[in-house]
Design a protein around this nucleic acid. Structure first.
Length: 285
DNA sequence: AGCCAGGCTAAAT
DNA sequence: ATTTAGCATGGC
């Protein structure tokens, strides 16, 4: 028999920043709590002094899926110690103590980031919300409201391109449809990725239409835990340019090469701090 | 109105 | 080997 709630002790975990840092797109804040769905578990997460409180809509047998998703066993201090000791990194860390990397479901992550290209985060959220309403399975959250699971590859694969375009995803529709069909048809195995090294895994993901280096890196970092993956998007490009090469314009290749050599074994983690730092700094003006 | 958004692809230098 | 349009859609 399961439980409806649990307390996960963890220090140095900034829940709000983590769930609102562009890694995931289906979590929203409702007063104190953050509401979201992991697999078929509908949850409310609340920040506490020494950890995170979780409440589920239905009894849960094992909470291991939640520890996995939140990565509560990660020793953040040990990760931060591997970052380069330079002024930009120090500022990025200072701007957001307790920011973490999550560990997501590969399909949800892949589909989400196929939909992310040249879209603002608010719009990505909107597209994915529509996709959930139209292709996900309805369920009740803690407050009795109807919410939706993330659509399976099979469900998306059975859709038409027009139905997907109706979710406002535009030219990304054929890419999502292609990925869903390859995965549903077992031509592409998301589990097999785990057995590959970073370079091989990246190449494999990039065989999918609409998946280039940046999206592949997001999936490798956010879903599979390849900590050396370093997604370079417009924000990170701007961050590297302004913070590390303020004097001259560096090419995209130069920036990428710098990123892959400068940030150490947890480069992807460092990237998330830079990303969040740039975004919050821009918001503040 | 025009520019840009957690890019990728194919065409053009 | 690098740089550049075109791609849908919406917010500012």
């Amino acid at each position: 028999m399961g439980a409806l709630e649990i307390f996960l002790p963890v220090c140095d975990y900034h829940l709000a920043a983590t769930l609102d840092s562009g890694q995931v797109f289906r979590w929203r804040q409702n007063r104190e709590a953050w509401e979201g769905i992991i697999g078929s578990h509908c949850l409310q997460l609340t920040q506490r002094e020494n950890g995170i409180h979780a409440a589920a809509a239905r009894p849960v047998e094992s909470w291991e899926f939640l520890r996995e998703f939140l990565q509560t066993k990660t020793d953040l201090a040990a990760v931060l110690k591997t970052f380069p000791d330079d002024e930009p990194m120090r500022r990025a860390i200072r701007a957001c103590r307790g920011l973490r990397l999550l560990r997501q479901d590969p399909w949800e992550c892949l589909a989400s980031f196929i939909l992310s290209s040249t879209k603002q985060i608010v719009q990505i959220r909107q597209i994915i919300a529509l996709l959930g309403e139209r292709f996900g399975e309805p369920m009740k959250n803690c407050d009795g409201q109807t919410v939706f699971t993330f659509p399976t590859p099979q469900k998306i694969a059975a859709a038409t391109e027009a139905e997907l375009r109706a979710c406002k995803m535009g030219f990304r529709a054929p890419s999502l449809l292609n990925a869903a069909r390859q995965i549903a048809g077992r031509e592409f195995d998301l589990e097999q990725i785990r057995q590959l090294d970073y370079g091989q895994a990246r190449m494999k993901l990039m065989t999918l239409r609409g998946v280039g280096g940046k999206i592949a890196d997001c999936v490798l970092l956010f879903a599979y835990g390849y900590d050396t993956a370093f997604p370079v998007d417009v924000w990170i490009e701007r961050a590297l340019q302004e913070l590390y090469f303020p004097r001259w314009r560096a090419s995209a290749q130069r920036l990428r090469n710098f990123a892959n050599t400068h940030f150490g074994p947890h480069a992807g983690y460092a990237q998330q701090y830079l990303f969040h730092y740039m975004r919050t700094r821009a918001q503040a003006g």
